[in-house]
Amino acid sequence: MRRRQLFLGLTIAFSALVSSVCCHNVTSGETRTEVNGSAFKFGSFRKQFHRLYEIGSEESDRRHRYFQDATKRHAYLNSFSAAPQSARYGINQFSDLSQEEFRDLYLQAQTSRAPCFSGPKTVGLPAKFDWRQKAVVAPVQNQQACGSCWAFSVVGAMQSVHAIEGSKLEQLSVQQVLDCSYKNKGCSGGSPLWALDWLKQTGVKLVPQSEYPYKAKTGICHFFSQSHGGVAVTNFTAHDFSGQEEAMMGQLVERGPLTAIVDAVSWQDYLGGIIQHHCSSQWSNHAILVVGYDTTGDIPYWIVQNSWGTTWGNEGYVYIKIGGNVCGIADSVAAVFL
């Protein structure tokens, strides 16, 4: 409850700040131009993202207000992005959702505390590393209106490690984890670490996605016999790498893509570039898959696969600055063993 009050308080303060930044000294003529321009953009948005609500309806009016709020937010967020590689914020498939709706639909990962990493650092790390270039990362998926990011991140790590070990890259069933991981809440949220612990303790084998397809809603668990083929987790590690992101880079290279939990509130408006601001740590709410890094440019960054489809971000990916635990990306990081 306290966290919800804090979130709402920050949202109200943020909205007030955006209004003061964007609307100071605006004349009535400028206001009409802005409203008309917004209406035009909203019409283009509805067409691009196939929104079916009827113009003039109560829902349409409400969505238009959220859309206008989003455009003001974009101006504020982009005011921090001076460098060429900085993150860009603008209109995407989430622009007609309120911030609270977005959070309730997509930011449902539960935070699980992990011990601080105390192992040795890997020496001789390459300046750039990307598991996608080794053809062991499956295509970007779309969780749709279901809080299943926690399941997508776990399954993404499992299918990559399976391929790294020599098997054919194959999409495994996210729906199986969603339906059967009794420690979690299906589309209402969950923790990657709880899911991994469930997989380890039960020895459940994940079957291919083709055998147990994704439905974007929680269903009844479909059990398979132990003789049925599939991929099982034998163990996993979970650590807090805050202040030790170089060690996290070593884990990525040695273990494969990593599951992580981040603060993704500002990702509602993300279009591309490297996120360096607008994220907190210790307030994680969304699970993702870290597949690589690049330290060759002016701004070193993590390469992160998301589960919101390829129309979001950098074709479904987001880049996050390495160092400073941006978005809390190093707070709770897991590596999978099969």
Rank of each mutant, 00 (worst) to 15 (best):
R2G: 13
L10D: 05
A16M: 07
L17E: 10
S19H: 15
V21Q: 08
C23I: 07
C23G: 11
S28T: 07
E30G: 05
E30R: 08
T33W: 14
T33G: 14
N36I: 09
F42C: 01
F42T: 00
G43K: 10
R46Y: 03
R51A: 01
Y53P: 01
E54I: 15
I55V: 11
I55Y: 14
E58S: 14
E58M: 10
R63G: 03
H64K: 00
R65A: 07
Y66V: 08
F67D: 00
F67T: 00
K72C: 08
R73C: 05
R73E: 04
A75C: 14
L77T: 02
L77Y: 08
S79G: 08
F80I: 08
A82H: 13
Q85N: 15
A87I: 06
R88G: 15
G90T: 02
S95V: 00
D96T: 02
S98C: 03
E101K: 05
E101F: 00
D104H: 04
D104P: 04
L105E: 10
L107H: 08
L107C: 10
G119F: 02
K121L: 12
K121M: 14
G124E: 08
G124F: 06
F129T: 09
D130G: 06
R132F: 13
V137K: 03
V140N: 04
Q141R: 09
N142H: 07
Q143H: 05
A151G: 02
F152T: 13
V154F: 07
V155F: 07
V155R: 07
V155E: 04
A163N: 03
A163P: 02
G166S: 06
K168P: 12
K168L: 04
E170S: 12
Q171T: 05
S173H: 13
S173D: 02
V177G: 02
V177A: 03
D179F: 01
G189W: 00
L196W: 10
D197P: 13
W198I: 00
W198N: 01
Q201M: 04
T202A: 02
G203R: 05
L206E: 04
L206Y: 00
P208Y: 08
Q209C: 14
K217A: 08
C221R: 07
F224A: 12
G229T: 14
V231H: 13
F236C: 01
F236Q: 00
H239R: 12
S242Y: 07
E245V: 11
E245N: 14
E246C: 15
G250W: 11
E254I: 09
S266M: 12
G272K: 12
G273Q: 11
I274S: 02
C279F: 04
W283Y: 14
S284T: 09
S284M: 11
N285Y: 11
N285D: 05
I288V: 04
L289Q: 03
V291N: 07
G292S: 11
G292W: 15
Y293Q: 11
Y293T: 07
N306C: 01
T310R: 11
G316P: 10
I320A: 11
I320H: 07
N325P: 08
N325G: 10
N325D: 15
V326Y: 02
G328N: 03
D331W: 06
D331E: 05
S332F: 00
A335Y: 06
V336E: 09
V336Q: 14
